[in-house]
Amino acid sequence: MKQTKTNAIRLLEQHKKPYTLFSYPVSDGKIDGQSVAQKINKPEHVVYKTLVAQGKSGAIYVALIPVNEELHLKKLQKVTAEKKVNMLLAKQLHDVTNYVRGGCSPIGMKKPYPTFIDSQAAQLDAIVVNAGKVGLQMELRLSDLVEAANAQFADLTI
C-alpha cells in the first residue's frame, strides 16, 4: 500500500532530513501516546506527543512532551510570558494546525508557531513524533526536529 505523504513528511524530504516511519493500527480506538509507543515498540521516553495551547493574547504555542508525562500549563505560561495558557480544544485543532487530534505533527503545521520541546529530550539522539496522520509516527534526529520545527527546549512537565 502506498504511503500518503503528509505535510511533515514533505517538509523533511524537501530539506533532505532522514526519518523512519512507523505505522500502527488504530482500529482499537487507542491513540493515546502510551498505546502508540507500545504499538511501535519504542520506549515511552523517546516518543513525544504534540500538544497545542493558546495564550491569553491569542497566540498559539506547541509543546512536545514524552507520552508518559503531563504538560504543566504554568511552566508553558512562564516560558511564553503569557498571563494564562489553555489547551486548544480538539475541535479547533484542525483549523489552527491542519492536523487532527491523534495525528498532530510538530512539523508542517498551517503556520510556524513557537514550539517548545521538554528539556528531557536534550539527552536523546533521536526522537519519535507524529508524522501528521493518526496511525503514523516518525523517528528522526533530535537536531533535525529542532531545526524543522524551529523549536527550543524548556522545562514543561509536571
Rank of each mutant, 00 (worst) to 15 (best):
K2D: 09
I127F: 05
K2C: 08
L145V: 02
P43C: 07
P66G: 06
Y19K: 07
G58I: 00
L93C: 07
L142C: 02
A59I: 06
T97H: 04
Q137N: 05
A37K: 05
P18R: 13
Q38I: 09
F153K: 03
D118G: 07
Q120I: 10
P66K: 01
K83A: 12
L93I: 12
P25H: 08
Q123I: 11
E70M: 15
Y99R: 10
S143P: 07
G108L: 08
A122R: 15
P18H: 12
S35W: 06
L76H: 05
P106M: 08
K56P: 00
D28R: 04
L136V: 02
I9Q: 12
G29P: 01
L88H: 06
V100C: 11
H45P: 07
L88F: 01
T115I: 04
E13N: 13
V129P: 03
T157I: 12
L136S: 05
G55S: 08
K110R: 14
T157V: 15
M109H: 07
I60Y: 10
I127V: 15
S23Q: 13
K2Y: 03
T6R: 03
L73H: 12
L21G: 11
Q38D: 04
T115F: 04
P112A: 14
K42T: 02
T20F: 01
N86P: 09
T50M: 11
V46N: 09
A154T: 03
